[in-house]
């Protein structure tokens, strides 16, 4: 599939015709609806809440938030942000219940601290990785977004962002930006290894004790068919104690450091760090 992110900025790409196509396409509608339901399942909201929809577009996901029944702990009140005026125009015509805001998420989230119970974002944040002008960078936009989002969620709040990363590098960049903003972050992959793979970035604020578990994996506790893979770095220096000065490992470390600084470093051979024979 081609990636619209690579061609144009979000507000330019989603013009009137593209916004209409996106909203009336029943295949896209179905996929969006199922992803929204999955995200709601991950958010696990106990009562009707105030939700931020990041990149709400024409309100396809917001519609589901407003349509929940009291048995499903709904309906929720939501506020949507999107950068494309055409998309919001379609949302207006469709008469969605949430409040809409024309705003660029790469410029931050203009809400005061602790406003929302939760945030949801369906197929939006990969747009942050394409900076369209010289005065912004993907890293800057990601950090402004995640910092703003972190502040606007209440303590113990959660955010679920479904996104389509272009490659592993982009996936890593987005996740790292979220962690740097202070979130507890985890990635949930649905249908891994297939064409329909869906990636959800699950973020938690503050609450260190999710359902008895100390970390992010508590979010998926008790869900069916979810395997937890913890690839967090264990203790860094397993050997323990400082490295012996002059040892081969120490020399290699120094050489590595110099190389990273851009110095010219002699190639490493089998003689590196060896003692000379005393007979010499």
């Amino acid at each position: 599939m081609s990636r619209p992110e690579d061609t144009l900025a979000a507000d330019v790409y989603y013009d009137d015709s593209e916004a209409r196509k996106y909203t009336t396409n029943s295949r896209i509608q179905n996929i969006q609806a199922s992803m929204t339901r999955r995200a709601l399942e991950l958010l696990d909201l106990p009562h009707p809440s105030l939700i931020l929809d990041v990149g709400c577009g024409s309100g396809l996901s917001g519609e589901i938030l407003s349509a929940l029944t009291p048995e499903e702990n709904g309906p929720h009140v939501w506020v949507g942000m999107d950068v494309s005026p055409s998309m919001l125009d379609v949302a207006l015509q469709r008469d969605v219940e949430g409040d809409l805001l024309l705003a660029d998420i790469g410029q931050g989230v203009p809400f005061r601290a602790g406003s929302f119970d939760a945030a949801i974002s369906i197929s939006a944040i990969q747009w942050l990785c394409s900076a369209e002008s010289s005065d912004t960078s993907p890293a800057g936009r990601l950090s402004r977004f995640f910092n703003g989002l972190y502040a606007s969620l209440k303590r113990g709040g959660r955010a679920v962002c479904q996104f389509y990363p272009k490659n592993d590098q982009q996936k890593k960049m987005i996740t790292e930006a979220a962690v740097r903003a202070g979130f507890g972050a985890g990635l949930l992959e649905d249908d891994p290894g297939t064409k329909n793979v869906k990636l959800y970035l699950v973020l938690t604020v503050g609450g260190t004790n999710i359902e008895g578990k100390g970390d992010i994996t508590g979010v998926v506790e008790g869900m069916e068919g979810v395997d937890v893979m913890d690839i967090r770095r264990k203790a860094k220096n397993l050997g323990g104690g400082p490295m012996k000065k002059g040892s081969k490992a120490w020399i290699m470390q120094q050489k590595g450091r110099m190389e990273r600084k851009g110095r010219i470093v002699k190639a490493t051979s089998k003689y590196t760090g060896r003692k000379r024979r005393p007979a010499f």
């Binding site: 942000m81 207006l92 409040d99 024309l102 705003a103 660029d104 931050g108 002008s133 005065d135 402004r144």
Partner: peptide
Amino acid sequence: KEGIANFLLPSHLV
């Protein structure tokens, strides 16, 4: 406008 607030900012204010 039409209930939608415009929060887009020129980049020097961000």
